[in-house]
């Protein structure tokens, strides 16, 4: 079994590793104030989570070739990420 960069599974794994590392780094390095900086960091962290979920669905679970299901899952997870961000931002503002 040979693996190469042209393999979508390899690219998916590398992207998941990079996004996980980046999200952790953003959380650890983010400034405590002002509040908008925390909200911006939260948006980046949730955006990365949405991307990771899409990669797992599209490449590990094979939805890349099922456009309707891919869009439905993407929208559902996007709705979750937006709702989470709004709740997080409200907490930051309070």
């Amino acid at each position: 079994m040979k693996l190469s960069w042209s393999d979508p599974l390899v690219r998916a794994w590398v992207a998941l590793m990079a996004l996980s590392l980046a999200a952790t780094a953003v959380a650890i390095l983010r400034p405590q104030s002002p509040a908008w900086a925390g909200t911006a960091a939260g948006a980046v962290i949730l955006g990365f989570a949405w991307l990771k979920a899409r990669i797992i669905l599209n490449r590990y679970l094979g939805l890349a070739f099922v456009p309707a299901a891919r869009r439905a899952f993407g929208a559902g997870l996007g709705g979750f990420a937006v709702a989470a961000l709004v709740l997080y931002a409200l907490g930051q503002a309070g």
């Binding site: 999200a23 953003v26 959380a27 962290i45 949730l46 989570a49 979920a53 590990y60 997080y88």
Partner: peptide
Amino acid sequence: VDLVWVILFPVIYLL
């Protein structure tokens, strides 16, 4: 299991 963790991890640990 992966998928659940990638949405749980940021909310519990990072936000």
